[in-house]
């Protein structure tokens, strides 16, 4: 009997196969479990919480027990009828567009010039210096900015008064921050993208440059006709990823808008972005309804922006599409 079954193995029936496949999958599901559980807790369960935007939330009744707003869109109405909605939307878009353009142009310039530095040690040193702020927290940068701009002791005011000028009160005049904030963001982020573009340039086939040299091309011609065209796909993909984040303060890294101006009320007009407003409404005013209404407004517009940018990326460069 045994011999016969061995030479002629019967096909396992369907339920047997299911059990076997389940047994094979089990260890993988065990390994995935912690990740999937935390993704559910951190991202999925809060999605249901957007209901708060339509509720008159109180902690005792919870999200589902709290009464609906009357009218339903009251939290939104309150926000959109105030000047604040216009201010934060404008600021968010203004600083994001400015940052995207400034960072791209500066990082490209720096990367192309870095590529001309042939000494390896010097090139690494320059890169290291430019990259340094990328790793600093916005709190540390707040301290750095304060040592530069402090009214009575800051080095900038010392320089101004030393030359006979009058000390400037940087922390109480909103208009200065239209320049200070973009410079701070550029200072923190330009290194990251410079090094990224340097890596992209390093990936260009050197044959192109050699051929161009044989034809007597100048440095500028090589940059204009080889480097830039070959970097174009990288530039486009990076820009499109930013399009998906246009509605997020600081292109997703908004902390600087909160810490750098010391969260000073007098400066909100030029320093407040959507995220800082949500954070403040939650932390200081404990206004759950309004905070989540603004959050939902941001999330919905953000969803469309991500969909649009992904749609274009998928057409141009499917490898870099998110989904």
């Amino acid at each position: 009997m045994k011999v016969i079954t061995n030479t002629k193995p019967s096909l396992p029936n369907k339920s047997n196969r299911t059990i076997r496949s389940m047994r094979r999958q089990l260890p993988f599901y065990l390994m995935m479990a912690p990740g999937l559980i935390f993704i559910t807790i951190l991202f999925y369960i809060p999605m249901g919480g957007v209901l708060i935007a339509f509720k008159d939330y109180n902690a005792r009744d919870g999200i589902f027990g709290s009464p609906w707003m009357d009218p339903l869109f009251k939290n939104f109405e309150f926000f959109f009828k105030s000047d604040v909605a216009r201010t934060v939307t404008f600021n968010t878009l203004f600083y994001n567009l400015l940052e995207a353009v400034a960072v791209t142009i500066c990082a490209l310039t720096i990367a192309i010039l870095l590529n001309e530095v042939k000494n390896k040690f010097l090139s690494a040193t320059y890169k290291g210096s430019i990259l340094l702020p990328t790793f600093l927290s916005w709190i540390v940068i707040q301290y750095i900015l304060f040592s530069l701009l402090s009214v009575d002791r800051g080095i900038v005011n010392s320089a101004i008064t030393g030359n006979g000028g009058e000390a400037i009160n940087w922390y109480s005049e909103p208009s200065y921050w239209r320049i200070i904030l973009p410079i701070a963001y550029l200072w923190k982020n330009v290194g990251y993208f410079s090094v990224l573009y340097v890596a992209a340039i390093a990936g260009i086939n050197p044959d192109y440059y050699e051929a161009a040299e044989l034809d007597g091309a100048s440095k500028w011609q090589k940059i204009r006709h080889i480097t830039l065209p070959l970097l174009k796909p990288t530039i486009i993909v990076l820009s499109l990823l930013w399009v998906g984040k246009l509605f997020n303060g600081g292109l997703g890294d908004w902390n600087g808008f909160y810490t750098l101006p010391n969260d000073a009320g007098a400066l909100y007009q030029t320093t407040d972005v959507i995220d800082t407003l949500v954070f403040r409404s939650l932390k200081k005013i404990n206004d759950y309804g309004m905070a989540s209404a603004i959050g939902l407004y941001q999330a919905v517009v953000g969803l469309f922006l991500v969909l649009i940018s992904n749609y274009i990326i998928k057409k141009k460069d499917p490898d870099n599409a998110l989904f």
Binding site: Y44, L282, S292, A299
Partner: peptide, 14 residues
């Protein structure tokens, strides 16, 4: 969750 997230407030309450 990259596409859509509930934001700060629901996470805070949770």
């Amino acid at each position: 969750p990259v596409l859509f997230n509930g934001g700060l407030v629901p996470q805070y309450i949770l």
